[in-house]
């Protein structure tokens, strides 16, 4: 299969390993990667701030470039929700409405693509650590991703998954919310970290790098030993 890969801006800049891991996994499974270098952002920051015109100007490039793809894999639940759920609304009653719907229909978040579309659950990875999983809200509630990442983790050798009580509670990132209301955002993040820490885990794993960026930022500032890691990086460990 020819897989078109969408790497969101913050992964490109700060967490390129996540993208590299996804490339490695998909290639090992025998797929060809098409990576549109000219695409950087899905437009979500502008969209979530209410600036839908600016969001559309960015998103239209994405839609035009991706509409003919065979299948689109995206390395984030949040940006995945933007493409799958919000593009059709953003482009409602515009010339791009059909193209946006077509993009939405063939877009998969990475873990969903592996488990649901390909039926792959075991990638032969080994990660000797205690981990807890954070459900990113967009992935969980807009895309219904709950079991997919856990199924993948359950096949990782020597990994112990310890569920936290607040797994489904928002970490407080929320895109531009995190800088517009930093104290609320951080209070929420502290709650999340405390819940993760209670499990005795060494790592918080998630399929959303944006949440992890926020949590890692808090943990680093507070000098806590807990670490964060993206699911794809766990799946390429051995």
């Amino acid at each position: 299969m020819k897989v078109t890969l969408f790497i969101p801006c913050f992964i490109d800049l700060c967490h390129p390993n996540v993208g590299m891991s996804i490339v490695q996994i998909l290639e090992q499974l025998g797929h060809t990667i098409d990576y549109p270098e000219e695409l950087t952002c899905c437009g979500q920051p502008a969209f979530n701030s209410g600036c839908w015109d600016e969001a559309r100007d960015v998103a239209v490039k994405v839609v035009e470039r991706l509409q003919d793809a065979e299948v689109i894999v995206i390395a984030s639940g949040s940006c995945g929700a933007m493409l799958k759920v919000f593009y059709p609304e953003l482009f409602q009653k515009t010339g791009c409405e059909q193209a946006a719907k077509s993009v939405a229909n063939k877009t998969f978040e990475f873990s969903d693509f592996l488990v649901t579309k390909l039926g792959v659950t075991d990638l032969g990875a080994r990660f000797p650590a205690r981990v807890t999983f954070h459900d990113g809200c967009h992935g969980l509630r807009e895309l219904d991703l709950k079991q997919q990442p856990r199924t993948l983790l359950s096949h990782v050798r020597d990994l112990e998954l310890l569920e936290m009580s607040e797994a489904e509670t928002c970490c407080g990132f929320g895109g531009t919310f995190s800088t517009k209301f930093p104290m609320i955002s951080s209070a929420m993040g502290d709650g999340k970290c405390a819940s993760a820490q209670e499990t005795g885990a060494e790592y918080i794993v998630s399929n959303d790098s944006s949440c992890l960026m926020h949590l890692q930022g808090l943990l680093d500032r507070q000098g806590k030993p807990l670490k964060t890691i993206h699911l794809a990086e766990v799946l390429t460990s051995s």
């Binding site: 800049l13 390129p16 590299m20 270098e37 951080s186 930022g217």
Partner: peptide
């Protein structure tokens, strides 16, 4: 970092700013 002079204070007041990777994904691909 984190002070009142920091233009990214909205983030850095409570969180460390993530660093731009020496090699971005786009660099890697190229």
């Amino acid at each position: 970092d984190g002070t009142r002079l920091d233009p990214a204070r909205g983030w850095t007041q409570t969180r460390k700013l993530p660093r731009i990777a020496p090699q971005t994904f786009k660099d890697f691909w190229r």
